[in-house]
Write a protein that binds this DNA or RNA. Structure first.
Lengths: 182, 182
DNA sequence: GTCTATAGGCCGATAGAC
DNA sequence: GTCTATCGGCCTATAGAC
């Protein structure tokens, strides 16, 4: 039976799940804990989500959709400035920073959702955009440090005002790429 | 009853566990799977390790011991060159690269072992050694990108010969720090 | 939409024979 | 040192009342 795609209770379940996933990990969080936080019972969750897997996937989707769209855009644009590209990547990651944090910290759990393959693909395409398709190890290392560093800054400097954080993270990432002036 | 600290079977259990943890995550791996891979049974594992937790902790200990020792040395030395410091950090992480990979990818699971607190402490002390104790956000971002990037290179360029990998990773990390020549 | 009750499975861990 | 057998617990998921 078709249930509405959004409802207040459904959103509250997603919010509580995301909080608990961030606090203690995805695999370590049971449906019972999510239900308890909302003073519901487990079967109530199953009214809104067909399975635990569907709940997790519904949390990942907005970020993956935005990243796929961003990459398709930049690949179509042809000639892209590195700092602008990294800036757009930062903005998407920041907008979904709770889920971004999950993806950085909880990879083995999320591998059941094909997340690992998608992340590997994103990084491959971003690396191609940054240092070209046939880059040597040195160039690939610079791209890895730049891209990984952006994500690490998001997580580790989470309480910094976003403007300041954005500038600092982009400066460091561009320096790693070998573009000291940006 | 005191069991020997090392034995061939004990080592084989640790090797099989580390393989499975790397393949599918720590929390996703049961004692039954580890026993099956060795054609043993669960109770045989309990002869060698008092609990699942003790098995995991025994895998983490060599890396944590080496990192603690390295940091104590560098903090005592006073004046340290950034590239040399990062080089020693790379060498320890590479020597224990299987466990290093676990610590980067499986943080929520390993948080039960106090690993998160230790990693946060290591990064804080390494950051202090690299950019000083009162660094601003921009400097801390550079240190985060440099340190995180080293680990990412270890994982993502795992099939690169170590000499080449070491040079490429250190070059990129030093560039992020703002020391382009090393 | 939410509940009570429960099925069915895998887990970590232990008892006790060999 | 390793086995068979088993315990108690928590999990995901479902049946069916309200």
């Amino acid at each position: 039976m078709a249930r509405p795609r959004t409802s207040r209770t459904r959103e509250r379940i997603q919010e509580a799940a995301l909080e608990l996933f961030a606090e203690q990990g995805v695999r370590q969080t049971s449906l019972r804990q999510i239900a308890d936080r909302l003073s519901l019972t487990k079967p109530a969750l199953y009214y809104h989500f067909a399975s635990r897997e569907e709940l997790v996937a519904s949390l990942l989707q907005p970020l993956t959709d935005d990243l796929d769209a961003l990459l398709a855009e930049d690949e179509a644009a042809g000639d892209v400035d590195a700092r602008e590209l990294l800036g757009r990547y930062f903005d998407v990651s920041y907008r979904h920073r709770a889920v971004t944090g999950l993806m950085l910290r909880d990879l083995p759990t999320l591998s059941e959702f094909g997340v690992v393959e998608r992340i590997v693909d994103w990084r491959r395409r971003l690396t191609t955009l940054l240092v070209g398709p046939d880059a040597d190890v040195a160039a690939r290392a610079r791209a890895i440090v730049a891209l990984g560093g952006l994500g690490d800054c998001l997580v580790l400097l989470a309480d910094t005002p976003v403007d300041e954080l954005r500038t600092a993270a982009l400066d460091a990432a561009c320096a790693a790429l070998g573009h000291p002036a940006g």
